[in-house]
């Protein structure tokens, strides 16, 4: 098991992500969600790799608590990306890949077999182009942003939801309300899931803006 981020852990069998599995992450806020998956495993000594995501905001990753020294980045793997992922799955616990276009079914089967054999987790962003259905599907959704007004304030936190489904998830999709990210840049649990509920206060007082004045 690889440890899962706090808001998700209680929903998953064994409170984590099963090694040897395929995880699909997508949706509006999917990048933040995929970064949050890296935090806990890296803190426990695992290594991770991110393949094919040249636009990844590394500062956001650092703010979420990702230990960048243990993340290998292959921003442009080229046409042999499947071979790159195979090498990484051999040795690293978690490999995030954004496939450049559709993946050939033979490649997908080979990579998943490799992950099963080595006990690593393959995480695919934008799983629509992936021929096999992931055993755990995480879809991020945005309800709204806190802190930004018309001509005032700054973005501070996003009220988001994560929809958990897939064979290894619960029988039917479960919706987890969360801060995606919260004001400190991290993924955090949020109490109310209903947008109709009374507006919840953003945790933490706003700090003085360093760029003002």
């Amino acid at each position: 098991m690889l440890p899962a981020p706090i808001p998700l852990a209680p929903l998953l069998p064994g409170a984590g992500i099963r090694r040897g599995g395929l995880v699909g992450v997508s949706g509006d806020g999917g990048t933040t969600l995929v970064l949050s998956l890296l935090v806990e495993p890296l803190a426990q000594g695992s290594w991770a790799a991110v393949v094919g995501m040249p636009e990844l905001g590394l500062e956001a990753a650092a703010a979420m608590g990702v230990d960048l020294a243990r993340v290998a980045l292959v921003p442009r793997p080229g046409p042999s990306w499947a071979a790159v992922v195979a090498v990484l799955l051999d040795a690293l616990d978690l490999v995030v890949v954004s496939p450049p276009g559709r993946c050939r079914p033979a490649d997908a089967r080979r990579l998943l077999a490799r992950a099963k054999e080595r006990g690593s987790v393959l995480c695919v962003t934008g799983p629509e182009g992936w021929p096999e259905s992931p055993e755990l599907v995480l879809v991020a959704e945005t309800e709204g942003w806190e802190g930004l007004d018309i001509g005032a304030g700054t973005l501070r936190a996003r009220r988001g939801r994560i929809v958990v489904s897939g064979r290894r998830g619960a029988g039917r999709p479960v919706v987890v309300p969360c801060w995606l990210p919260g004001p400190d840049g991290r993924l955090a649990a949020r109490r109310s899931g209903s947008p109709k509920a009374a507006p919840e206060r953003v945790p933490d007082e706003p700090e003085a803006m360093p760029w003002a004045g």
Binding site: L68, V71, A72, V74, P75, V84, L88
Partner: peptide, 21 residues
């Protein structure tokens, strides 16, 4: 991990595998 990344560096060339700081 270090061995695998060295190997990958050999496959892809010097400017393909990175870490961030």
């Amino acid at each position: 991990a270090v061995r695998a990344l060295d190997r990958l560096g050999g496959m892809l060339g010097p400017e393909a595998v990175f870490t961030a700081t």
